[in-house]
């Protein structure tokens, strides 16, 4: 089973547009949107949801004012400043550690399981897709990412599909770590800017930290060709595979507005470049298959 995870470090470099295009180009695959915090892939792949599941993870403390004796001991144990002086738990600050629950002398703190969001199995014109929606301002995004990657894998196995295309989240924190671990390869999509360069290095270091091979593609390369060249040299020096450049092409935005991938949108420089990047990426992945 091959899994390609598309990441970027910096947000807004074109991950989702690229995954959408790959979805239209690749045969025999499962799609997975692991950007559970701000998922967008569904906006260009028109999924029809066939299964909807609640995501329960962790717990939150709730003080029952009826049982509470107002001794205030919980205030001093809480390390997250989640309990107000009038002894109410702020659900946004509570990390669900349960210390107040355990030590409350009046046993006045309830500890219900937390519903953190929903996850879905869908059918799209390009194959099955597993995606999710983290509840607003919720925690445990890493666990939700691990869950939908697991589901995507078992779906691929049960249908005999050999490839998973995963749209990853930005950054390098918990949901990214959950997206990258155990993948066959990571494709980092970057842009030729000082911030793109800075963030590419960090996300590539993260992938290396977890032993996942890194491929790099520069989007909007013509906005600053010198930096794009520099990024290609960076990849050579660091042992990452440079898989190509995409031009700044307003067709990406126009396709998105029509709810389409760039591949369906029609012939344009962006589509041409995407096709060539996909051939390179897929060729490398098949080559590194063990």
């Amino acid at each position: 089973m091959l899994e390609l995870v598309v990441v970027s470090g910096k947000g807004g470099t074109g991950k989702t547009s690229l995954v959408g295009a790959f979805a239209a180009l690749a045969a025999e695959k499962v799609l997975c949107d692991a950007d559970v915090d701000a998922a967008d892939l569904h906006l260009i792949l028109a999924p029809r949801i066939v299964a909807r599941n609640a995501f329960w993870s962790g717990r939150k403390a709730v003080i029952d004012p009826g049982r509470c004796t107002r001794c205030g001991e919980c205030l001093q144990w809480c390390r997250f400043e989640a309990i107000s002086t009038d002894l109410v738990v702020d659900e946004l600050s509570c990390e669900g550690c349960g210390v107040c629950v355990h030590f409350c002398p009046a046993r006045a703190v309830d500890f219900p399981e937390n519903n953190c969001g929903e996850w879905f199995v869908s059918e799209t014109p390009f194959g099955p897709m597993v995606h999710a929606k983290l509840g607003i301002a919720e925690e445990n995004s890493g666990k939700l990412v691990s869950l939908i990657r697991r589901e995507a894998r078992s779906l691929a196995e049960s249908r005999g599909l050999g490839l998973i295309l995963t749209d990853g989240p930005p950054g390098i924190g918990c949901p990214v770590i959950a997206s990258v671990g155990g993948a066959s390869a990571v494709l980092a999509v970057t842009e030729p800017t000082v911030s793109g360069k800075h963030d590419l290095k960090r996300v590539a270091d993260l992938a290396r930290h977890f032993g996942v091979p890194v491929m790099v593609c520069v989007n909007k390369w013509d906005l600053h060709p010198e930096t794009a060249d520099e990024m290609e040299r960076f990849c050579r020096n660091e042992g990452h595979r440079f898989v190509g450049r995409l031009p700044f092409d307003p067709a990406f935005t126009r396709a998105q507005i029509l709810g389409k991938t760039i591949v369906e949108y029609g012939d344009c420089p962006g589509k041409e470049a995407v096709v060539s990047v996909w051939e390179k990426v897929y060729g490398l992945m098949r080559g590194t298959r063990s």
Binding site: A38, D40, L43, S93, A137, E139, S141, G171, Q256, G259
Partner: peptide, 30 residues
């Protein structure tokens, strides 16, 4: 970016939040 715990930790206690977006489907959804 996003809406989960790092964002909450950053915004908590602000007097005003400026949300920067772009006029596209992804921009509006997020």
């Amino acid at each position: 970016p996003g809406t989960s715990c790092p964002v909450i930790a950053s915004l908590r206690g602000s007097d005003f939040v400026v949300l920067v977006t772009e006029p596209t489907p992804f921009g509006l959804n997020d």
